[in-house]
Amino acid sequence: MTDEDVLAKIKASVLGLTEEPKLARPRRITARTTPDKVLTVLSGLKDAGCRHLSAISSVDLGDAFEVIYHVSVGGVLVSLRTSLPKATPLVPTATGVFPVAVLYEREAHDLMGIEFEGHPDPRPLLLYEGWPEGQYPLRKDWKPPTGGEKHA
């Protein structure tokens, strides 16, 4: 399918989007939804042909967090984003729709502190066991603990 085909299919069949999906660049579609509708949209995208979850990105925008699900069909990548409040960055787990999300969500939790409700195995993935709880290094306001080298 060409990126135009994929876009048309999404517009026609995927429910729960809060904005018109757009072709941002060749083979790159962006879409948006709210946290409560994420699973609906992800299932819809999957049914529309996007059966591969390539990655889940987490971003600290300063005034909010953003979680972006990158799903694809062949070369066409759809980036579905949702905004989460800073105080309670909570979104349902996508593992029921895309099993590979199990590791990507652990990473987003570990480094950015996003909570994935219902995750079957919410253990740290990358930070070692001695890492202090509640310290999320990818957050913009995170500072390394005092003492030691200047953070590069």
């Binding site: 990358l126 930070l127 070692y128 290094p137 390394p144 080298e149 200047k150 953070h151 590069a152």
Partner: peptide, 9 residues
């Protein structure tokens, strides 16, 4: 990697 948060260095 000097100075990175998970590195002794």
């Amino acid at each position: 990697f000097k100075g990175l948060y998970h590195v002794v260095g």
